[in-house]
Amino acid sequence: MGQPIKILIVEDEMIIAANIAMQLRELGYEVTAMVSRGLEALTHIRKNPPDIVLLDIQLKGTLDGIETAQLMQKEYDIPIIYLTANADDFYFNRAKGTHPFAFISKPFKKLDLQHAIELTANQMMFRNNPKPNPTEAGKASFVLSDRIFVRHNEKMIKVIIKDIYYVEAERNYCKIHTKDKVYLLVTTLKDMEEKLPTGHFLRIHRSYIANLAQVDEVSSSHVVISKKAVPMGKGLRSKLLDRLHTI
């Protein structure tokens, strides 16, 4: 089931923070908190990790925004969008070392905020997580994070990968079928096949990728997933059964 993207705002000007929060909620995102200091942000992240952090570079207090990001990144891999009223080379070059997904210069428009978040979500969607488990070596070439981000009703929402039933090709689009909704994604099935974790998903037909954990029945020409018959290509049944035996 789709969920709103969760965003933490770290901004020491509370009027600005409140305005950002209002705009984010209007865009359909969830604001987990508004905090004004770096140490507060780190405490909040440990209790309720967001999907994205909007972080003022020039925070007051013990830690500025860049130092806060550096400490956060020792424990978490959460995308950062920097907010800045001062884009001089000193701060910019320091900030680059934390690999932010975007910079937003104050004052900014609602559209600037929307675009920065959507670009970040798109990058997150197909970003590999290069942290292989030694016991899983050789089973997959990479491990994707546990979610993807899709546009639905004019906003970006996250879909947890394990909740996907199957993916269906429709020309240059893909339909992602979950328990409650169908999401349309502007990408090809080939691209989806390359990005989904190979340990759990298998292309069973030229137009379908199945989540192996969701397969209820296997027939000679199709599989059943949540009472839906999904076509299976000729000669793929044995491969599918082999994979089902290993999960």
Score class of each variant (00 low, 15 high):
G61P: 11
L189V: 07
I5L: 13
I157W: 03
L212P: 03
H205Q: 12
V150A: 07
P130N: 14
K179V: 12
Q70R: 15
L189R: 00
A69T: 03
N172R: 14
D216A: 08
V215P: 04
F90P: 03
V186A: 06
I176K: 02
V159W: 01
V186N: 12
K139M: 14
L59N: 05
M156I: 12
K155I: 01
K179H: 14
H152R: 09
N211S: 12
N19D: 08
N133E: 15
F108N: 03
N129R: 15
A87V: 05
R94W: 06
T188M: 09
Q23I: 05
V230A: 00
L119A: 09
P49I: 10
L27T: 04
L144T: 13
Q3V: 13
V230N: 04
I66P: 05
L144M: 14
A210M: 09
N211A: 11
I81S: 02
E193C: 01
I209H: 05
Y91F: 14
A137Y: 14
K228D: 03
I80S: 04
A140D: 12
I9P: 02
Y76K: 08
K239G: 12
L24V: 07
L59Y: 02
T135M: 14
Y82S: 00
D242V: 09
Q73N: 11
Q3W: 10
T120N: 03
D64I: 06
L184V: 13
T120D: 01
I176H: 02
E194P: 03
S207Q: 12
E26V: 09
R94S: 08
A102H: 15
E168G: 07
T178F: 06
G97F: 05
K181P: 02
D112G: 04
K131Y: 15
K234Q: 13
L119N: 11
I5W: 05
I57Q: 01
K74F: 00
F149D: 00
F201H: 01
I57A: 04
K190A: 06
Y165W: 13
T198E: 10
P132H: 15
G233I: 02
E40N: 11
M156W: 05
I66Y: 07
E154A: 08
G199K: 10
V218A: 10
V159P: 04
Y166F: 15
T43M: 02
R206F: 07
D163S: 11
N211C: 10
S207E: 08
